[in-house]
């Protein structure tokens, strides 16, 4: 359990600091857009997969610990997106279903649902950050 959380935390941390240096996330998106989930790309001399962090975490062994860890991370991210005012429609439902799946011992299902919730919440937070900087670009200019 501890191990997964720390992997996720490090990955998330690294991602966010990379994004500010322009663009691990841009490079990732560009590669994923072209190739789907099973591609690779190079960034700063290293090779990476186009699999998302969430997909990677959901492919860990399906057990109670891993499912709970992913669920907890997703729930926290969801809260963050909610506080930002950019939560998405289905995220809460995925979390609820994930929790139910954990209770029912369906750990892979729970992990897939939590992964989806986490991804959506993460994108919602990014959407807020983008809007903060760029909403003004959509306003019609004065002539």
């Amino acid at each position: 359990m501890k191990k997964i959380i720390s992997i996720a935390a490090v990955a998330a941390l690294t991602l966010s600091s990379m994004a500010s240096a322009q663009s691990f996330s841009e490079a990732f998106d560009a590669a994923r857009a072209l190739q789907g989930a099973n591609g690779t790309f190079e960034w700063n001399g290293k090779k990476y997969s186009t699999q998302t962090i969430e997909e990677a975490l959901a492919s860990k062994p399906a057990n109670a610990e891993n499912a709970q860890a992913l669920f907890d991370a997703a729930k926290a991210k969801y809260k963050e997106s909610q506080e930002a005012g950019f939560a998405w429609r289905d995220t809460k439902k995925y979390l609820k279903e994930s929790k139910e799946a954990i209770a029912a011992g369906e750990f892979q299902k729970a992990m897939d649902l939590a992964a989806r919730a986490h991804y959506q919440a993460r994108k919602g937070v990014e959407q807020r950050d983008y809007a903060e900087k760029h909403w003004i670009d959509a306003v019609p200019p004065l002539n």
């Binding site: 950019f86 998405w88 429609r89 959506q120 809007a131 909403w135 959509a138 306003v139």
Partner: peptide, 17 residues
């Protein structure tokens, strides 16, 4: 005004869109 022009939601739509 900011709400009106900010893209939001899974569909990434603002009021202005």
């Amino acid at each position: 005004k900011k709400f009106f022009y900010s893209k939001r939601g899974q569909l990434n739509l603002s009021c202005a869109d």
